[in-house]
Nucleic acid binder design. Structure first.
Lengths: 143, 143
DNA sequence: TTTTCTATTGACAATGATTTTCATTTTCAG
DNA sequence: CTGAAAATGAAAATCATTGTCAATAGAAAA
């Protein structure tokens, strides 16, 4: 899975005449290996533990490349900064976000997806992607 | 409708020991009178046309008050800044956003809403509010 | 009306995430 | 190897948003 993602990144870079460098591979690898919904800061921190001279700008730049390649997706959940998650463009999921402890739970529901498509159809609107986030209190915080 | 909104704002301010000033009324009125999904910049611009010495900070502060009062809701649609829309807390709606021309279309669908609740229930999650945005190409841009 | 207390305002500085700049280093095709 | 083009890191620049603060205005009391 990880290798596949890195290969796809490699392919994307080649197709654009860009280079796979040590930093880019390290950042991409760290991103794909670790838990989802990482902020740029977290990713930078993890990468620095391995190779301490990687700069913030390079993390931002690489994340942007991954986005452009369709391998990462950025979202802003309302706190100040953008979080990224691997985007394997096959299965899509949405989020439950606890406003008390910040936990993020993923879910998917095909019936909602198909209803969304039907609504869009009523407006002759062609959906390319969507965001659905349910905010509230998670079970842990409730008990 | 407009009077009702302004009255609610007035009530909220009173309940908090705050004052309804000329600037606040002007900003709130302009906000409620005009089209939805206004950015702070747009609102500031419109307000300045009427009373040219109203500052940015006051627009931000008033928008925050309106949010706290439950009369406005802020969202970030991916471009750099926050847009606000009147929030009459009775009927909820979601958005279709055209990534080509920027058009924002509102819709509501009760079946999706109830499915959302049932999904949340599976995770023993108590939803307070949600965001659903479908991005794509609108009918105008498609033809 | 006048006083007095407190909220409000606007100009401007500060913040903080993200981007850009730029001089230096690295990559890779020839 | 070599040299052109891409990539990097450090620091400066952006830009939306928030905080500061001295000056002003509103409301209640006198």
């Amino acid at each position: 899975m990880l290798k596949k993602m890195l290969d796809q990144f490699q392919n994307y870079l080649s197709s654009k005449g860009l280079r796979m460098t040590g930093q880019r591979e390290l950042i991409a690898r760290t991103f794909f290996e670790n838990q989802r919904h990482m902020s740029t800061e977290e990713l930078h921190h993890r990468v620095q533990k391995i190779s301490s001279q990687v700069g913030y700008a390079t993390v931002y730049r690489t994340l942007k490349l991954l986005s452009d390649a369709g391998l990462a997706a950025g979202r802003s959940f309302g706190d100040g900064f953008t979080r990224y998650e691997p985007d394997n463009q096959i299965e899509h999921h949405d989020h439950l976000i606890c406003t008390r402890c910040g936990a993020i739970i993923e879910f998917e529901n095909d019936r909602i997806e198909s209803l969304q498509k039907s609504v869009a159809g009523q407006y002759r609107f062609e959906v390319t992607h969507h965001v659905m986030e349910l905010y509230g209190i998670c079970s842990k915080c409730r008990s």
